[in-house]
Design a binder for these strands. Sequence first.
DNA 1: TTGAAAGCGCTAACAC
DNA 2: GTGTTAGCGCTTTCAA
Lengths: 360, 360
Amino acid sequence: MSAAPTVYDVADKAGVSIATVSRVYRSPQSVREPTRDRVLEAARSLGYVPSGNARGLASRTTGVLGLCFPDYADPDVDAEGAGPDGDGDDDGAVVMLYSDQIIRGMERAARRHGYALLIAASLEGGPESLVAQVAGRVDGFAVLSQTVPTSDLEVIAQRLPIVMLAGPREIDHLDHIEVANADGVRELTRHLVEDHGLRRLAFVGGQESSPDARARFRGFQEACRETGLPVPSAPDLRAEPMTQAEGSRAAEALLDREGPAPEAMLFANDQMAVGALHALERRGVRVPEDIAVTGFDGIPLGRVVRPSLTTVRQPMRRLGEEAVELLVRRLGDRTLEPASLMLPVTVVRRGSCGCGPAGA
Amino acid sequence: MSAAPTVYDVADKAGVSIATVSRVYRSPQSVREPTRDRVLEAARSLGYVPSGNARGLASRTTGVLGLCFPDYADPDVDAEGAGPDGDGDDDGAVVMLYSDQIIRGMERAARRHGYALLIAASLEGGPESLVAQVAGRVDGFAVLSQTVPTSDLEVIAQRLPIVMLAGPREIDHLDHIEVANADGVRELTRHLVEDHGLRRLAFVGGQESSPDARARFRGFQEACRETGLPVPSAPDLRAEPMTQAEGSRAAEALLDREGPAPEAMLFANDQMAVGALHALERRGVRVPEDIAVTGFDGIPLGRVVRPSLTTVRQPMRRLGEEAVELLVRRLGDRTLEPASLMLPVTVVRRGSCGCGPAGA
DNA sequence: TTGAAAGCGCTAACAC
DNA sequence: GTGTTAGCGCTTTCAA
């Protein structure tokens, strides 16, 4: 691991100029074969690896796309492994699936276009923040909403393409992709009311500050209105972190409320719904016979719990893929009008609402 | 999106030198506050974003760590979304969890150390391959075994730290982390024999070329030897892709063999074991009453199938974290002896071997 | 087909 | 505390 060999070293050893070395890597067919072989051989023996930095500097592109996502978990908590059975992992696996899927989608699409992917969970501000870490090293990047301060984005957007993911359009001159949160819940709710004949519905929302959670509740309201049910002005309950534990708690609270128990509980995400399923089982309440339960997201876990979870599937992977498409498109033509995509969601009817094979 | 502003533009506008602009970003406290504010203000108004390339070139570091992993799935298959219910996703979600977990682990650890993470699934060779894409842009990187040709790694390793993940140590002067495949299966097998009194065991392996699958079978052999059972020289069966479908097929083949049915089926991974569970259920064979089934990996799916799957959990996230630690350590001192870690695995006793709450 | 030379935008001594 | 000045390793005209 001595000083890094450069084009000069390779050129010397191969008896050519640095320009030729460069050509061997950038357009091999423009160099005669014997020359090319000599260069490659020299490079190999020297352990030469082209410097991406120098290359990027000279050519003004990086061949890298980026993704900034929120820092869900405390990085220090599970630093050195979980407990004996590591049961703690599970919720983690579920939580992150969200960004994992986006990463996967972006990685694939990026690869198709010849880009690598740089990922970074958001750090705090400061001039040396994620902005510098990521923005300065990529040709363009995607940002999950509420990850990077709008003011930073405004600055960076002057310089390179940014696409905003999931969440409302915070900056209207940027490309933007969101998911049809309200539509999904509306359709799901109508299914509960119209197909299953349920009328006492309870909605468990999330943080008030979450635009996604708000949009989902809005879908619920719309469905109530459309089906002639009383339109609530706020969720029956809000769960602060939208976890399984909070879902359990919420389900029990709903059960313990005065008056007749609800016929259905709609949760703003799958994790809470799964937690609720556990709580209901503990209380001896049968799902879906006594009560229907639904979630939102379409996490893998939802299809294997019993009863399997009726939910609204978000096309996370596709979100990542479309993000890359948008970036690549804009990289090709900076003058394009800002695009705003709304990706459709799918209501997935499974056991927990009374559809599908309820049991096994 | 006009020409990118540079330190010169900012310096001009702020009435300082470029060195001062640089200092504002690299060591803010070494610049007097009024000066700093002027610079920041100028930068902001210009939409200045420091060029990671120029920076890296000048400072000879990137602040980025990399990961190269195999390209499991065909990138074109699910390009434009899956079917209506998208059931195809599921297996994909399960398969990829492997690298997803490593990515997650690396990302977290990298962040703790102030690095971002560059990821790329392997492309085919050629001078402009992934190697160049990644290797030239990071300070060091991790490679999942059998992803990058050994010869390429040899070359790159002369230049920057590489840690090899999962799989045998292909290059002995590189840092390397593997998982205790053999130990895990040996312990699991002994549990079956010693605690459940099972003696007719069948082992379903994977591709012969897979070092992991081979190591797992070796663990099985060791346990047989240690418990006085006949030691098989080869797995009872090999599944070519280690999928649920192949697991089902294998289970049926095992059932249809002549002679007494096995009392336990050990699979080289969880996916096959889950497939087997389905097949056995279809055939009316009860698990664990009639036969025990075990897997390997510890995928989330395993804990929610019924009966829940007894398996050996691999510490994937930790693998990623340790990889970063090794890289960071070596970045700090290139003369360190190459390290070789063997991460312990955990036998997870659940319903499918007769432990734990068999049913619900 | 190959070479010479001028940057790309920044950092890091070293002066002041 | 701030400015000057060399490069960092590559790509890219422009000539030959």
